[in-house]
Nucleic acid binder design. Structure first.
Length: 507
DNA sequence: CGTCTTTGACCGGCGC
DNA sequence: GCGCCGGTCAAAGACG
């Protein structure tokens, strides 16, 4: 049934025409209700789906059953519509909060600047204050040259407007996209690219032509630093994941330690796009496809590719920002959602929308000296029905143990609106080192940020149950965290994309 | 005939 | 210096 394969998206409203929006909302309804049924232990919705998908044709009560299904589906659609409305309100609140925090940040930055304009800044917090700094310091060690830092600071001043614009571009464009639909894709693309360029992800667009072969390192002072990679583990029977991009295979190798060949793909959407990906089946579980992305697209992406691109880019940005501050770049990122992943990847056979409802970001450190800093997005979690959990906060994938055995660090968890927590969802930290996405209130934002604040000092990042701060402290904390960690901005934007932006594909 | 895939060769980094 | 290994190139073949 096609509806079941459709990605779970939340309509941003005003996206495409009415027809399309209805279609999306309908899709959500089915999927979301399925999820709710899963989470809450109710199976009626799913059973209903199955009945629908299997086209019951057994007895005389068929018509009445179908009518019941139609009614229930309508009811589900209504529920989802309400949820959409709530999400929109949440999003609006997030925008407000973000703008407020941003303004506070710039005020603080200006004050700091007026104070310290002539001082040498060797504080890491200061170093992390701007995206530009991160951008320029990425690829250097944490003890990078002070001169560069100074220059970065001065550049920061001159480029502050640009930064602000870029920041605004990122989030606002998404929201614009939600409103205008048709502009969504390009907006997000521009956001992704600009953000990635700012944060210094590998293969920035401007360097593309020099990166073919061995050129890029020649022009980068931090040539010794490896490119960040984002590895996505997902169950997929197809040879490669359909992530929306066009890829051309340019090589295949048998890598050591894995009998399955590793295929090398290059993005062919644009002639000089530096993005490459490696695809390899997991040796332990052949059904798991490991796709490793490297680089940044230097072109606009089809919408179907933007979700994955934003996911990987934000994850990479987290990784890079973390690695720049620590010699052990162990980054755990609360990030993305099932809706994002399902929107990003149209795996044909084993529908990930059903098998991957949460995203785990375990430690990227597999070896002590990884050749490339890599962050792994594990989408191989199995349905909760296979691993029933008494608490929504304790829902781990059945193969989690294997994941954690490879990645000993604990993980953030960032699940989507599938959560059975009362809607609207809210940000909050759960026990057991998992960060659950539940709502977007200010206090929850503070909790979220707390998790991030721990990052610089955490070789193994574990979220701890957060304590409630006063509103002032929370805002200050949030401001600090946002400004100190550019990856948060990417994550926030990508999260929004995953939560609501998916509905922006009404275009 | 153009595009894509396959596959052996080649290159550079890294460890010993 | 040597060998291993990951990554890439490019010629040849396959395919539509």
């Amino acid at each position: 049934m096609e509806v079941m394969k459709s990605p779970v998206v939340v309509s941003g409203g005003g996206g495409g025409g009415f027809k399309e929006e209805m279609k999306f909302e309908s899709n959500i309804g089915v999927d979301e209700v399925r999820e709710l049924g899963k989470i809450g232990g109710q199976t009626t919705a799913r059973d209903g789906d199955r009945s629908m998908s299997s086209s019951p044709n057994r007895n005389d009560s068929k018509n009445s059953e179908q009518e019941n299904h139609v009614e229930s589906t309508r009811a589900e659609i209504g529920v989802v519509r309400e949820e959409n409305e709530r999400l929109r309100m949440i999003l609006a609140q997030m925008v407000k909060d973000y703008q407020s925090l941003k303004m506070q940040f710039f005020d603080i930055a200006q004050q700091e600047q007026s104070k310290d304009s002539n001082e040498t800044i060797d504080n890491d917090n200061m170093i992390d204050k701007t995206e530009l700094q991160v951008s320029l310091s990425l690829g250097t060690t944490s003890s990078g040259p002070k001169k560069e830092e100074k220059m970065n600071i001065s550049n920061k001043i001159s480029d502050e407007g640009e930064l602000r614009e870029g920041l605004t571009l990122g989030l606002d464009c998404k929201f614009e996209g939600l409103k205008e639909g048709s502009t969504y894709t390009s907006s997000e693309n521009s956001f992704i690219e600009s953000k990635e360029e700012e944060i210094g992800l590998p293969w920035p667009p401007g360097r593309v032509l020099k990166n073919l072969r061995s050129g890029e390192d020649d022009i980068l002072p931090q040539a010794h630093v490896k490119k960040a990679r984002v590895s996505v583990r997902a169950r997929c029977d197809a040879p490669t994941m359909n992530d929306g991009c066009q890829w051309r295979k340019y090589g295949q190798k048998i890598a050591k330690g894995n009998p399955c060949p590793r295929a090398y793909y290059r993005c062919t959407v644009a002639p000089a796009c530096p993005v490459r990906k490696q695809v390899q089946r997991c040796a332990e579980d052949m059904s798991i496809l490991i796709t490793t992305y490297e680089g940044t697209h230097n072109h606009s992406l089809p919408f179907s590719a933007t979700a994955m691109a934003s996911t990987t880019s934000a994850a990479a940005s987290m990784l890079m920002s973390g690695s720049s501050g620590s010699s052990h770049p162990t980054i755990l990122a609360p990030y993305s959602t099932s809706s994002l992943t399902t929107a990003a990847m149209n795996f044909n056979p084993t529908d990930v929308s059903r098998t991957s409802r949460s995203l785990y970001l375990p430690s990227q450190s597999i070896s002590s000296t990884p050749p490339h800093p890599t962050i792994t997005l594990d989408l191989t979690s199995t349905p909760s029905s296979l691993a029933p959990m008494s608490s929504p906060f304790n829902r781990f994938p059945s193969n989690y143990s294997s994941v954690t055995s490879r990645f000993p660090s604990s993980s953030f968890r960032f699940s989507s609106s599938e959560s059975n927590a009362p809607l609207p969802p809210s940000w909050g930290a759960s026990s057991k080192g998992y960060l659950n996405y539940q709502s977007y209130g200010k206090s929850q934002l503070g909790s979220f940020n707390q998790a991030y604040i721990q990052k610089p000092n955490a070789s193994t990042l574990v979220t701890t149950p957060t304590t409630q701060h006063s509103l002032t402290d929370t805002i200050a904390t949030a401001t600090k965290a946002i400004t100190a960690d550019p990856s948060f901005q990417s994550a926030l934007a990508a999260a929004i994309t995953s939560i609501v932006g998916g509905g922006g594909n009404g275009s």
